Simulated assay, not measured.
Amino acid sequence: MTNKIQEANLAMVVSKTFSGLNVNALRYLLPLWIAPLTGVTFRCVFAAVAFWIIGYWAKPETASVKDKIYLFLLGAVGIYGYMFSYLMGLSKTTPVSAAIFTSMQPIWVFILSVFFFNEKATVMKIVGILVGLGGALLCISTQKSDDLASDAFSGNLFCLVSSVIYAVYLILSNRFLKRTGPYTLMRYTFSGAAVSSLIVMAFVGYEASLTTPPLHFWPIALLLFVLIFPTVISYLLIPTGLKYLSTTVVAIYGYLILVVASIVSFLVGQDRFSWEQLGAMLLICVGVYWVEIAENNGRERKRPHSPSIT
């Protein structure tokens, strides 16, 4: 069991690191080398094809036709809506701000669970929600548009909406995960997202200068990284972590996305340090800690934990 726990910890470190680097890679590509909606299509179609191929070699899973249709529709609205909002937001704001809103997903999961699944709301959890929302408000209200963020306000709002949509998707998909299995879940939800992305692209058009000659190495390399590692491998590593680690530990690993994205952003010049942004980051981290961790007391959650995929 010790080896399994070590493998689970390693899986979470690798998964969250990829997710953090994904923020920086996407920001490099958006919108100069690829339009946000075209980027969504690339990710959804590639993931759908990859998960169907991987699922063919995986352990057989059973699911009713009704569940498959439900998952397809959930992906068509949930995953596509999440990626649409996230890439639109990231194209307008900085990677650090986008990662800040991604880290809020556990807070939205809890709020939705209180309203729709009768989860108990304690004083500490309510305080955590308010602190986290205060951090989001601080980030939205203080960040100004500049050469690194063409429209910081709308970009941050898009990222905020994306984190809410993903929380809804997580709660709904979790209700089918145990009876359908992870590979069935990923195949049908990403198939739905792929269909939605292709329909939208048919109307808005294809726009990706990185595929127009002369081809450039770094844009192509970063696109391949985004498609293979954060989009596919990160999703495959998460079940290993969730199987052998407590949700408390998984929640702590979620902060790696914010840490990695922030460090890389400052090193490569994708963001500039600001006290307001640091304050927002700390407030949201504290809020998530109180909501997700402080009252666990070593017990497993009945509600789903957000894997914080970007």
Rank of each mutant, 00 (worst) to 15 (best):
residue 272 R to W: 00
residue 230 P to H: 06
residue 227 L to K: 09
residue 272 R to A: 04
residue 272 R to E: 03
residue 267 L to Y: 12
residue 270 Q to G: 03
residue 283 L to A: 14
residue 199 I to Q: 03
residue 278 L to I: 10
residue 282 L to Q: 06
residue 248 T to A: 14
residue 226 V to T: 13
residue 245 L to W: 07
residue 261 A to G: 08
residue 224 L to Q: 02
residue 227 L to V: 11
residue 246 S to H: 11
residue 249 V to K: 15
residue 212 T to A: 09
residue 254 G to D: 04
residue 192 G to S: 02
residue 246 S to R: 15
residue 206 Y to N: 10
residue 263 I to M: 13
residue 233 I to M: 15
residue 189 T to F: 03
residue 237 L to H: 07
residue 212 T to Y: 02
residue 282 L to N: 06
residue 238 I to N: 12
residue 238 I to D: 02
residue 287 G to L: 05
residue 248 T to K: 15
residue 196 S to T: 12
residue 202 A to H: 08
residue 218 W to S: 02
residue 191 S to A: 11
residue 239 P to K: 11
residue 220 I to D: 02
residue 285 C to Q: 12
residue 192 G to K: 08
residue 199 I to W: 03
residue 275 W to K: 14
residue 266 F to S: 08
residue 186 M to F: 04
residue 252 I to K: 14
residue 259 V to W: 07
residue 217 F to C: 04
residue 229 F to G: 10
residue 286 V to N: 02
residue 217 F to S: 07
residue 222 L to W: 03
residue 194 A to W: 04
residue 226 V to Q: 11
residue 193 A to C: 04
residue 209 S to N: 05
residue 259 V to T: 10
residue 263 I to A: 15
residue 254 G to I: 12
residue 218 W to Q: 06
residue 255 Y to M: 12
residue 283 L to H: 04
residue 228 I to G: 02
residue 280 A to G: 13
residue 266 F to I: 11
residue 243 K to M: 09
residue 220 I to H: 05
residue 266 F to Q: 07
residue 253 Y to I: 06
residue 253 Y to E: 03
residue 193 A to E: 00
residue 208 A to W: 00
residue 208 A to L: 00
residue 186 M to A: 09
residue 233 I to C: 11
residue 251 A to S: 15
residue 192 G to H: 01
residue 256 L to H: 08
residue 280 A to D: 01
residue 257 I to W: 03
residue 199 I to C: 04
residue 261 A to V: 10
residue 286 V to M: 12
residue 216 H to P: 00
residue 197 S to G: 01
residue 284 I to K: 08
residue 223 L to A: 12
residue 287 G to M: 08
residue 258 L to Y: 10
residue 284 I to D: 01
residue 203 F to D: 00
residue 268 V to R: 12
residue 237 L to A: 03
residue 195 V to W: 00
residue 277 Q to V: 06
residue 255 Y to W: 13
residue 227 L to H: 07
residue 228 I to C: 15
residue 259 V to M: 10
residue 184 T to V: 12
residue 286 V to F: 12
residue 185 L to M: 12
residue 212 T to K: 10
residue 243 K to Q: 13
residue 213 P to N: 05
residue 257 I to M: 11
residue 239 P to R: 09
residue 285 C to A: 12
residue 259 V to F: 11
residue 208 A to F: 00
residue 181 G to D: 05
residue 252 I to T: 09
residue 193 A to Y: 00
residue 241 G to T: 14
residue 227 L to W: 09
residue 216 H to Q: 14
residue 210 L to W: 07
residue 218 W to R: 09
residue 275 W to M: 10
residue 252 I to H: 13
residue 284 I to E: 01
residue 189 T to Y: 01
residue 254 G to N: 13
residue 231 T to W: 04
residue 182 P to K: 11
residue 241 G to K: 14
residue 197 S to E: 05
residue 247 T to F: 08
residue 230 P to V: 12
residue 221 A to Y: 09
residue 220 I to M: 14
residue 216 H to A: 08
residue 187 R to Q: 13
